[in-house]
Design a protein around this nucleic acid. Structure first.
Length: 167
DNA sequence: TAGGCCATCTGGTCCT
DNA sequence: AGGACCAGATGGCCTA
């Protein structure tokens, strides 16, 4: 596993700070992209739908870039929150996104197995907790046999171990 | 240097 | 109409 502490990236960003520093570069970048995409009939058609001039288009683009950045930041925060909830992961060994999702999935499966084995396959009060509750109940009913549960637990611990060793 | 991971930009599509 | 969401493209950083 690699250590994923990365330095700052140098990009054509329009972060509040960066935008002031690299406005010229940014505009240049936008113009280049514009040149590249000028030939696309799809894009030409899409633009024909709107009567934006190039200034409008540019400022709209910048605004939507900013929104997209914020959206991705939110998504990354959610990933971080998920990382913090998965046990046995050292803070300095940051999981990648795909690792986080895979580990979380297996963690949930192993918890499900644990719950099932503790309750002998019966989950009291789940049925009565509304439509989502009954769905959940059905899901639990479809859970694997004991030997398969063991397998899921094993899979989860193996994964944790391999992530830790890989760092 | 190649490959993995990531942030950002972008245009298209969906949703409100 | 405008914002949210998505997926592809691009390029930087890092490690083996």
């Amino acid at each position: 596993m690699k250590t994923k502490t990365k330095g700052k990236k140098r990009k054509f960003t329009v972060d509040k700070e960066a935008s002031r520093l690299s406005e010229e570069e940014l505009v240049k970048c936008l113009r280049q992209k514009e040149k590249r995409s000028r030939g696309s009939s799809k894009i030409v058609a899409a633009r024909a739908k709107h009567s934006w001039n190039s200034k409008d288009r540019e400022s709209r683009r910048l605004e939507s870039n900013e929104r997209e950045r914020q959206r991705m930041h939110k998504l990354n925060n959610a990933f971080q929150a998920l990382r913090e909830v998965i046990p046995h992961v050292r803070a300095e060994n940051k999981l990648s996104k795909i690792e986080t999702l895979t580990l979380a999935k297996n963690y949930i499966k192993s918890l499900t197995s644990t719950i099932l084995s503790m309750s002998n396959g019966h989950l009291p009060d789940i049925e009565g907790s509304g439509p989502s509750g009954s769905k959940l109940y059905q899901h639990y009913q479809q859970q694997p046999r004991e030997d398969e549960r063991e397998e899921q637990l094993k899979k989860y611990s193996t994964q944790i171990q391999s992530f830790s060793e890989g760092s």
